[in-house]
Amino acid sequence: MKRWLRQRVDAAYEQLLSREISGAPTHVAVIQDGNRRYARRKGNDAPQGHRAGAKTTERVLEWCQDVGVEELTLYAFSTENFDRPDEENEALFDLLCEKLREFADADRVHDNEVRIRAIGDVDRLPERVREAVDYAERRTRGYDRFVLNIALAYGGRSQLLEAVRGVAADVEAGEVSPDDIEVETIEDRLYEQPVRDVDLIIRTGGDERTSNFLPWHANGNEAAVFFCTPYWPEFSKTDFLRGIRTYEHRAESWRRTRARRALALLGAISDAELAEAQSIVERFRDSLPTAERPDPEELEAGENEQVDGIDSSGRAAD
């Protein structure tokens, strides 16, 4: 009876969250933590926990497509994982081979035009895993409706280090001028294919850290982060929707901040910046509390006259 009631409550909460969500992040990155602890709690070995987690991965892919996410990155195997027992890693490598080929052949992957890509130092992986990666990438190369990145032998710092080394080598060879180095110069060397900025990081298993995951694309974009306690095999759609809601609250806070900054600047900027600031205020006006919202007439007046005693040229009014 208690289990039945719990299921009813969970279903009702999931419906409530679904109604509350009005938008979705473009790129979600997931740290799938807790597979081994889940297995130990069940009295099983680590490989059984990873296999249970693989089922959750399939469901999360569907949930992302349901709410409109366009790119999903899964932290499947880090560079630190090489230090785990060989028998555990070999079982995980077998599972990765199985799932990569299964995904690459799945009707739902092709029906939804999912492109599968691996990011990380894939050359460090066993040959059978590299072959499975190549198979999945070749089978889905022509798709672009949804991107599924699998982070394998991945370490955020090592990826950045290799990118910087590449830029330094080009500078030394005279192929790139230091003055020409921009954000895109680094990004072009991080991965073979572009990766969108991360909007939301989800980590399961109870730890509250991002573990060197996509630092360039997450930290630089001030991504929202959602930590939750369920182990990865137990991660539910309700947990996923709570993560999406965290992103929405973060995005709403960002819009309020932008609007407030623009309002503060309206009275002290030049003609060239005035139109942009007014555009920001108008765009994010509804995100401000009612008491802080300027009247449309005030914004229009600021275009031709003055705001807070300062005219459109930035000079104090007489």
Rank of each mutant, 00 (worst) to 15 (best):
M1S: 09
R3K: 09
D10C: 01
E20K: 09
R36Q: 15
Y38F: 14
R40N: 14
P47T: 14
Q48I: 15
G49T: 13
H50S: 12
D83G: 14
F93W: 03
D94W: 02
C97W: 07
R101D: 07
E102Y: 10
A106K: 10
N112G: 00
I116P: 00
G120K: 10
V122P: 14
R124I: 01
R124Y: 12
A136M: 06
Q159M: 08
L160N: 02
E162H: 11
A168G: 14
A168I: 03
I181D: 08
D188E: 15
V195S: 07
V198N: 13
D199A: 02
I202K: 00
W216M: 08
A218C: 08
G220H: 04
T229L: 09
P233W: 03
E234C: 06
S236H: 13
K237T: 01
R242V: 01
G243T: 05
H249T: 15
H249L: 09
R256Q: 04
A268Q: 08
A268C: 07
S270A: 11
D271A: 06
A272Y: 00
A277Y: 10
I280P: 03
D286V: 06
P289N: 12
D295A: 13
P296T: 06
E303K: 14
D311K: 12
S313T: 15
A317S: 15
